[in-house]
């Protein structure tokens, strides 16, 4: 499995950007069309997996991604609590729409970080 497949590299290398754009589209249009943060985040995590399968590179700092995930989770909780439990009766409709977009984006980044860390841990997992 350690040699690179040229078929995989060419195909996935051309599909790379489209998958990123598709994931961002799903996250950004989560409040209008089916989809949302979790689904888009999973698609963005699959980009990292394709990056591993194409290049077999092991240069990824998973500690940074973990810290990013924790910070984003705290931001998510604070944002949701402030806007839903305190400001919900006073907020206008456009404010709520912005809230949905930002929450979807935060959840997307968090889920993609989490799934990438899980996948790279399974890759580098010291077997036996």
């Amino acid at each position: 499995m350690n040699e690179e497949s040229i078929l995989l590299r060419k195909t996935m290398g051309s599909l790379y950007t489209y998958i990123i754009i598709f994931g961002i589209y799903i996250i950004y249009n989560g409040h209008l069309t089916p989809g949302g943060g979790f689904q888009g985040g999973a698609i963005l995590a699959s980009v990292f997996i394709i990056h591993y399968l194409v290049t077999y590179s092991k240069t990824l700092r998973s500690a940074t991604l973990t810290n990013l995930e924790k910070v984003i989770y705290v931001a998510l909780v604070v944002f949701a609590i402030v806007l839903i439990f305190y400001l919900n009766p006073y907020a206008s409709l456009s404010t709520k729409r912005v809230y949905l977009i930002i929450m979807n984006g935060l959840i997307g980044i968090k889920v993609s970080c989490g799934l990438t860390v899980v996948f790279y841990r399974f890759i580098f997992f010291e077997s036996r």
């Binding site: 089916p34 989809g35 949302g36 699959s46 997996i49 799934l115 899980v118 997992f125 077997s127």
Partner: peptide, 27 residues
């Protein structure tokens, strides 16, 4: 239920399969 369909297609069909295959090659 297109939301659940997207989540199932991405998680169950792609990520879980790839992770299982990588774990197979590890062992």
């Amino acid at each position: 239920a297109p939301d659940v369909a997207i989540a199932e297609a991405v998680i169950g069909c792609t990520l879980a399969t790839v992770i299982y295959l990588v774990a197979m090659t590890k062992y």
